[in-house]
Design a protein around this nucleic acid. Structure first.
Lengths: 133, 133
DNA sequence: TTTAATAATAGTAATCATTACTATTATTAT
DNA sequence: ATAATAATAGTAATGATTACTATTATTAAA
């Protein structure tokens, strides 16, 4: 990140403009509306750079997809196992998880990743509407 | 899993014989010592089946690798960011994480994945031995 | 113990996300 | 303007996983 590029700015803007947690290819499709010939490799490279410099974070869900997030405040995520939707979640008092683990393991524990799974409200409601269930 | 196969038994035995958390290709290499012409696809298929039926679990670390584990008791993992080693970790009183999240999200939260990152004891010690550090 | 039905396999090809490569273009400092 | 070089587009390569298919192995029944 030694020189400005419109491509990088666009990638960051796309991600900042949504509350969802899109994948690289979703961001690519969206960025193409702005820069039609932007290449997928450029999107990947810039997502990596932006993450390296702390502008964005990313995490992988069990379905294998990497999700990106321009909200860098400490928070967790919930992933619906039915529709795949990811929702932000702020939990208090979780720093002690690291210190607890560190004490038990006698290792240097720096951080943790915590991901919840279940059914989102929408999927719960649509389940109720289905016959024979 | 309607019929027995030596390949499936071998895959499970390989995994049960180690305390580490190997990847599919590591298990493949190990299984080939027993069945030289076992195919990688067979290893993948059987790992999926064994997981589906609850004999093993699996989880992905940030480096992108899927790790398998024949210990199905509820426990967590620590992953060393330097050497990639994965260590088991039992934490008490973490069921309330799900209920906490459920209350906040108003969703059905069924389970969570918690993965710690840091430096293992071996990597901490070898860091001390390096000059200019 | 044959036999018939079919589950599981080996070997290979296909897929998908991501990364690497390279000639060209864009940015920046002078 | 110019020179140095970072970043790009387009494409090829990679690596993990899955799909496909003809063959083999297991199982239940005759």
């Amino acid at each position: 990140m030694k020189k400005y590029s419109r491509q990088r700015e666009t990638v960051l803007e796309v991600l900042q403009s949504v509350k969802t947690h899109p994948t690289a290819s979703w961001i690519y499709d969206r960025a193409r509306l702005e820069i039609p010939n932007i290449s997928l490799g450029t999107v990947y490279r810039n997502l990596s750079e932006l993450r390296k410099f702390g502008y964005i974070i990313s995490f992988k869900t069990d379905d294998g997809n990497e999700h990106f997030d321009a909200t860098t405040d400490k928070h967790y995520h919930f992933c619906c196992t039915e529709c795949g939707k990811v929702i932000d979640l702020i939990l208090e008092g979780t720093e002690e998880l690291d210190s607890k683990a560190q004490k038990i393991l006698d290792c240097e524990v720096n951080n943790h990743q915590l991901l919840f799974y279940g059914r989102c409200k929408l999927c719960m409601n649509s389940a109720k509407l289905k016959p024979n269930n």
